[in-house]
Design a protein around this nucleic acid. Structure first.
Length: 759
DNA sequence: GAAGCCCACATTTTT
DNA sequence: TGTGGGCTTC
């Protein structure tokens, strides 16, 4: 054990060794937080605490996996595997399955992901004949989610004067009714959404003292990572479990709390001591990750926030380079600058592509960097966006699995009742749905006894329904004998999905087929992995319950490959890279326009920036563009106010990077620019802004595509040299027909094409 | 009932 | 720019 502790600094060591009561470890960025957590668990195990008495909760699956493997390295795989370690959602869904009947569910309940939830909300809004412009499904679901995270049940919601007043004031008085119906529907479908996993856990523990006692005894020691990101529901679970024995250790950094939009409550960590009065607080302030310049810059930034626990993060690493701030003329040029710089870094130094990350505020920003990187032949990998399990073809197949495991699952039913098409349309589904609501049963039950529920459909439709019913019932029977992999194959074969997929030879079709194959492989892998661990029957329900809590962070782990990483700042939390580019540092983007009105929102955005900067080990480059294409149009942008929050001593600012205060002249200029753009046609509108470019720019765009005429020779960024053969007006857009030397005949939409006029 | 077309709208992060 | 929902036509 001594050798374990010797690898820690004195603060870390104190935190690890303290085990007699509640403790709060405030871990500054890069201060070895994960190290402390893993060593602490190893320490507990070495002290003789059996692994199955330890509950360790993380925020992401990835973090859990990583920690598990690190612990395995310290104490061996066998012990590591017996730990209760995972995300809140994963651990408590497991517990809820064990105790399902206590809360009126069966153990095979299925889990709705956010898109399922939104769909259901949309459906209910429609059923209630409410205006979906007023009741925007996403926003409504968000509010329901908030209520659940605050443990406000539909009943409490309806009785809470304040909330009802608020909804009335915001012209959405029916929200309570939507919430009520939504919750009923989930229940009738024997399904839970993400928030339910936490809410029902609380209800389970609240209403069943024997269950609570059971788990209190089981979890002799409770550890929680990223405590600053917990919401009220999670906080209360931890509180209930640890209330008696007080053996609880939470780790976090209030400066990195970036999930309040999901109900995370920074007070949980700020006020942890009042929940557990005996709490010992440990502060880890030495940053081992970054250079002094990066740490100092980040410190100066975060100092601008009001609410925080005092700490002084420091680094004893080399001083390092200053944070470079680069302005680009347009979003497009920003992409080029970053790509060029990465290429240069690679060429000049010992930088591998995998040492580099590009971090942005929103997923939509990734595209432009994809393009610029591709142009430079720089390999990259994007995290986020549409995850594998959210692709249509995959969700459809998973819906079959869900329906087999839990025939009550309404969303799954709706998705596949007519996929592949079998002549059961909206009208029929509407009737089934209506009948289900009338009798308060699931859609599946109507399908099982259409006569009993007086389902009013014609003979042909009834027959089609019966066939579908039979199909699924057949799978349900197969589910008794076949393992997950076998059953998946059966489903794909008997539904004709596989045939359809392989007959479609369009590029999209082929990629779909590939995805389906990938899914099969994943199931196969899942089954054999479990079998290796000694499980004999690996059922579909096992696969499902794992997969429904998985996010894209997980799929396609081609680590070690020499690729530049592209991701949002949120998903970069917990990671580190030698060289980080934080891009799109503009007002209304970062900070987001959604957040800037509330002071607390702004503080959170600032923390987000703090997180971004502190991902960097050696260099950090911050870029912004002066104009950006967003939601279909290009707009002038200004650099982020956060740039001024960083002490200039730690910045390397290119001359005149910061725009002088906006004056009316400038406003007028942008305005006239916008009007012009709306009335005329041109290439990238940004190319018209008469300001000198930064030197990094390598591409010159045509000054005025509107002047393009027959016979002109152009240089297109992708197709190379070509001659304009004709120009045509189509709708509001102009189209050029170009004969390219190497690429042949192409049509270019002038609005989007990127080229310059050579002659 | 299904396929195909058109239009509106996007606007933050994710377990 | 891309997607998804609604409408129209067969």
């Amino acid at each position: 054990m001594e050798h374990l502790l010797s690898q820690l600094n004195s603060k870390q060591r104190e935190a690890v060794e303290f085990c007699d009561g509640p403790s709060l470890i405030i871990a500054g960025a890069g201060s070895g937080k994960t190290r402390v957590l893993t060593y602490k668990i190893a320490y507990l195990l070495e002290q003789g605490l059996p692994p199955y008495y330890i509950l360790a909760l993380t925020f992401t699956n990835k973090a859990a996996r990583e920690m598990k493997s690190r612990i395995a390295d310290l104490v061996g795989e066998k012990k590591a595997r017996q730990l209760w370690m995972g995300t809140f959602h994963a651990i408590f869904s497991r517990i809820l399955r064990n105790e399902a009947e206590r809360i009126g569910f069966t153990p095979n309940f299925t889990i709705f992901d956010s898109s399922d939830s939104s769909n259901l909300v949309r459906l209910i809004i429609k059923e209630m004949q409410l205006d979906d412009k007023v009741y925007r499904p996403g926003a409504v679901h968000n509010q329901i989610s908030r209520a659940k995270n605050g443990l406000i049940t539909p009943g409490m919601y309806a009785q809470n004067r304040e909330i009802i007043e608020y909804d009335r004031a915001s012209k959405r008085p029916q929200l309570f009714e939507i919430y009520q119906r939504y919750q009923n529907r989930l229940k009738a479908a024997n399904s839970m959404d993400f928030d339910d996993l936490l809410m029902y856990t609380n209800i389970l523990l609240r209403d069943n003292p024997d269950v609570l006692e059971d788990y209190r005894n089981r979890f002799q020691f409770v550890l929680v990572d990223e405590y600053q990101d917990t919401n009220f529901a999670q906080h209360l679970i931890v509180k209930q479990l640890a209330e008696l024995h007080h053996r609880v250790c939470v780790v976090g950094d209030d400066a990195q709390s970036i999930y309040s939009f999901r109900g995370a409550n920074i007070d949980n960590i700020l006020k942890f001591k009042s929940t557990f009065p005996q709490t010992q607080i440990f502060k880890l302030e030495q940053n081992y990750r970054s250079t002094q310049n990066i740490v100092n810059a980040a410190n100066s930034l975060i100092k601008k926030n009001k609410e925080q626990i005092f700490k002084e993060v420091f680094s004893e690493n080399e001083e390092g380079e200053k944070i470079e701030v680069v302005s680009a003329f347009s979003d497009f040029e920003e992409g080029l600058i970053v790509a060029n710089k990465i290429a240069r870094m690679r060429y000049e130094g010992h930088t591998g592509f995998s040492d580099v990350a590009i971090l942005y505020r929103t997923n939509a920003q990734s595209r432009i960097f994809e393009e610029s990187l591709r142009k430079k032949n720089i390999p990259y990998v994007i995290y986020g966006g549409l995850s594998f399990y959210q692709r249509k073809e995959i969700k459809d197949i998973i819906s079959y699995f869900r329906l087999i495991v839990n025939p009550g699952d309404e969303e799954a039913f709706r998705r596949i009742v007519n996929y592949p098409t079998r002549g059961i349309g909206d009208v029929t589904v509407g009737k089934i749905s209506e009948s289900a609501r009338l009798h308060n049963v699931s859609l599946w039950q109507i399908l099982s006894s259409p006569l009993q529920y007086n389902l009013d459909v014609n003979r042909g439709t009834a027959r089609k329904l019966a066939l579908f019913h039979e199909l699924i019932n057949g799978f349900i029977a197969d589910n008794e004998t076949q393992n997950a992999y076998e059953l998946a194959q059966t489903v794909l074969k008997n539904t004709g999905i596989v045939k359809e997929a392989y007959e479609d030879l369009t590029p999209e079709g082929m990629s779909r087929a590939q995805n389906i194959q990938e899914l099969l492989n994943a199931i196969n892998e899942f089954v054999s992995e479990r079998q290796e661990q000694g499980e004999e029957d690996v059922r579909l329900v096992d696969f499902l319950s794992e997969v429904s809590l998985l996010t894209d962070q997980d799929t396609g782990d081609d680590e070690g490959n020499e690729k530049v990483t592209l991701m949002t700042v949120h998903s970069a939390k917990g990671l580190e890279f030698n060289h980080v580019f934080v891009v799109g540092m503009e007002e209304d983007l970062f900070p987001s326009s959604m957040a800037k009105f509330e002071p607390r929102g702004l503080e959170e955005e600032r923390r987000l920036f703090y997180v971004a900067i502190t991902r960097a080990k050696k260099t950090c480059t911050v870029t912004f563009a002066r104009s950006r294409f967003r939601n279909g149009s290009t707009n002038a942008t200004r650099e982020s106010q956060f740039l001024k929050d960083i002490d200039p001593r730690f910045l390397l600012m290119e001359q005149k990077a910061l725009t002088p205060a906006r004056d009316e002249l400038a406003d007028g200029f942008w305005e006239s620019l916008r009007q012009k753009r709306e009335s005329s046609v041109f290439v990238r509108p940004s190319s018209r802004i008469p300001v000198s470019r930064t030197e990094n720019s390598s591409l010159k765009l045509s000054e005025e595509a509107g002047q393009l005429k027959e016979g002109d020779v152009i240089e297109h960024e992708r197709f190379g040299r070509g001659v304009v053969t004709s120009i045509e007006q189509s709708g509001g857009d102009k189209r050029a027909f170009v004969d390219f030397d190497s690429a042949g005949q192409k049509q270019l939409l002038l609005k989007f094409a990127k080229f310059k006029i050579v002659q």
